[in-house]
């Protein structure tokens, strides 16, 4: 049996009308319409455009949530094997709708989906959210090149074939996936090195990073009035590791009360970090999280008050994504707790 395809287009390509009809809410019509007829002719028995999903560009842009919900309902009545959207060329609102419908189909309805649009169409941002987007020209003049590429990738996705941006030409989605290498790493490395020495072009297999730069917080005006918190990625936990923080690739952090403590007592706290020799930290946990010194500073009035809990996790192979989520939650709690400064000890 061939693939059952739903094609998404706007009111203009559906032949309903121009701007004056752009507030049309989503509707489903059976069979292909407009560019869908080209898709149908290219299918040559491999499948059928069973329906066309149409939405006005203005409606989609101004009622995005409603348009998505309604589109999803309509798609579920058909349950297609593949959704194709556009091509939207350089049309911004149409591109937005195509990208969003493709993302929605894949991530929420688990229906393989591809959209086509010019790479600078604002709708192409949906690629970063995981949608497959085939780049094409900026105007309908490129329709005849764009539609076959849209369909070719769609068929590969719908039939479960392996795809990659390098081979299939879609916009990078920022997703890394393990695959079996065709040549050993050593052979690829030597080939790359010889190309580099000879001044030939080469491509790094790992994309080079662009990191967030976190601007430092403004200085604390006067530490004598500040509440100071202690944080560590050094894995210091109460004996027995009650929250089972992992010794590497930590998936969680924890907070433990220190309001009653003058200093950490060896044996009552221990480090569960798997990335360094923990003997010294266990012999005196205060060298990992300087509670003893912080209490002395508090008593001497050099800092206002020590926060009543300390935060801990293990920073050992922890993904940036996890670390960012820990940071967001911890920072929000510290702010809610009136903390103005934090000392984060790293190992």
């Amino acid at each position: 049996m061939g693939l059952r395809i739903v094609h998404y287009i706007n009111q203009f390509f559906a032949g309903i009308g121009g701007e004056e009809k752009a507030d049309l809410p989503p509707e489903l019509r059976s069979g292909p319409l407009g560019p869908g007829r080209l898709i149908q002719s290219l299918l040559e028995g491999r499948g059928e455009v069973v329906a066309t999903l149409i939405c006005g560009d203005t409606y989609f842009a101004e009622h995005q949530e409603e348009a998505c919900r309604h589109s999803a309902e309509l798609l579920l009545t058909v349950k297609p094997d593949l959704l194709l959207a556009g091509p939207a060329f350089a049309s911004g609102r149409y591109g937005l709708a195509c990208g969003e419908v493709a993302r929605l189909a894949l991530h929420e309805l688990k229906i393989p989906a591809v959209a086509a649009m010019h790479p600078e169409n604002p709708g192409a941002q949906a690629a970063v959210a995981g949608a497959h987007i085939v780049p094409c020209g900026s105007s309908a003049a490129s329709m005849k090149e764009a539609v076959p590429r849209l369909l070719a990738l769609g068929i590969k996705l719908a039939t479960g074939a392996d795809v990659s941006p390098d081979v299939d030409g879609y916009l990078p989605r920022g997703i890394r996936k393990n695959v079996t290498a065709e040549l050993p790493a050593s052979a690829r490395a030597l080939d790359m090195l010889l190309a580099k020495i000879a001044g030939r072009s080469f491509a790094s297999e790992v994309p080079l990073p662009q990191f967030d730069r976190v601007p430092p917080a403004p200085p604390v005006p006067d530490l004598r009035w500040a509440t100071v918190a202690l944080l560590t990625e050094g894995g210091l936990v109460p004996r027995g590791n009650p929250d089972r923080i992992e010794s590497s690739r930590a998936s969680r952090y924890a907070r433990y009360p220190i309001g009653e403590l003058r200093a950490f007592v060896p044996g009552e706290f221990e480090s569960v970090h798997g990335g360094y020799a923990t003997d010294h930290a266990n012999a005196d946990p205060n060298r990992l999280v300087p509670l003893d010194v912080a209490r002395r500073l508090e008593k001497a009035g050099r800092i206002g008050r020590l926060h009543e809990v300390y935060y801990t996790t293990v920073g050992n192979g922890t993904s940036v994504q996890k670390a960012q989520s820990f940071a967001r939650e911890i920072a929000a709690e510290l702010r809610a707790g009136g903390v103005q400064a934090a000392i984060l000890t790293a190992t």
Binding site: A185, F202, V206, P207, P209, S319, V320, Q321
Partner: peptide
């Protein structure tokens, strides 16, 4: 899920990496 930036750090001259 493969969505995190894959390197912990970098220097501009480290421009040829085999995965």
């Amino acid at each position: 899920d493969g969505r995190t930036p894959p390197l912990l750090g970098s220097l501009p001259s480290a421009d040829a990496l085999v995965s």
